[in-house]
């Protein structure tokens, strides 16, 4: 990140209630965080809602942050919790929809991409891969996105999720097994090794 000293100064000023400094911080982080949210939620509106709620909460709790150098991971933590909430809410809605029949359920599942035009532009392969990621269970998807797209180390993800490192590792492993199964066939070889 460019000029970390300036960023620390912005965080300190924001902690003292300086809204302009906080605005500058939001600007610095919005794109990175939006992509994280978008990769997890696959819908622009949900991603922006998630991000808005995240930055409002960050402001509300900024004074609780004692180590300003941990700001980024802390924002990731709040964002992750928000995104997980949205994913769980969606799962509940999906379960509710199931009682109305599989056709409705199918529509709900395929309705995530943004527009018909966008759908047309995507190749089948791209769509297949995006679907495979989208269908990961919420926590697996979150860990995978943080590791693979955001480049967070597993120790950092453990901190973000407040989980033991081993749990995070196992979650990522399971996510990759699922992706592998969906994209290039079942992971028979791996299963034998784990037995």
């Amino acid at each position: 990140m460019e000029n970390p000293e300036l960023e620390l100064e912005l965080i300190r000023r924001a902690q003292q209630g300086d809204l302009r400094a906080y605005g500058a911080l939001v600007k610095r982080y919005e794109e990175r965080m939006f992509y994280t949210a978008y990769r997890i939620l696959h819908q622009r509106e949900d991603a922006e809602d998630c991000l808005q709620e995240t930055f409002l909460r960050v402001w509300d709790r900024l004074r609780e942050l004692s180590d300003v150098r941990a700001f980024q991971l802390w924002v990731y933590r709040i964002l992750s919790n928000q995104a997980l909430d949205i994913l769980r809410r969606r799962e509940r809605q999906r379960e509710g929809l199931e009682s109305y029949g599989s056709e409705v359920l199918h529509l709900a599942r395929v309705s995530s991409p943004a527009s018909p035009r966008e759908l047309l532009r995507r190749s089948r392969e791209v769509e297949r891969i995006e679907r495979a990621i989208e269908e990961l269970p919420p926590r697996q998807k979150l860990v995978f996105v943080l590791r693979h797209f955001q480049g967070l180390k597993l120790t950092e993800i453990a901190e973000v999720l407040n989980s033991p490192l081993g749990t995070v590792k196992a979650t990522l492993h399971n996510a990759l097994q699922k992706l592998q199964g969906s994209l290039i066939g079942s992971g028979e070889v791996d299963e034998r090794a784990r037995r």
Partner: peptide, 12 residues
Amino acid sequence: VDRATVEPEERI
């Protein structure tokens, strides 16, 4: 995965 998702098309 990388090939399919190099850059999201959506922008904030």
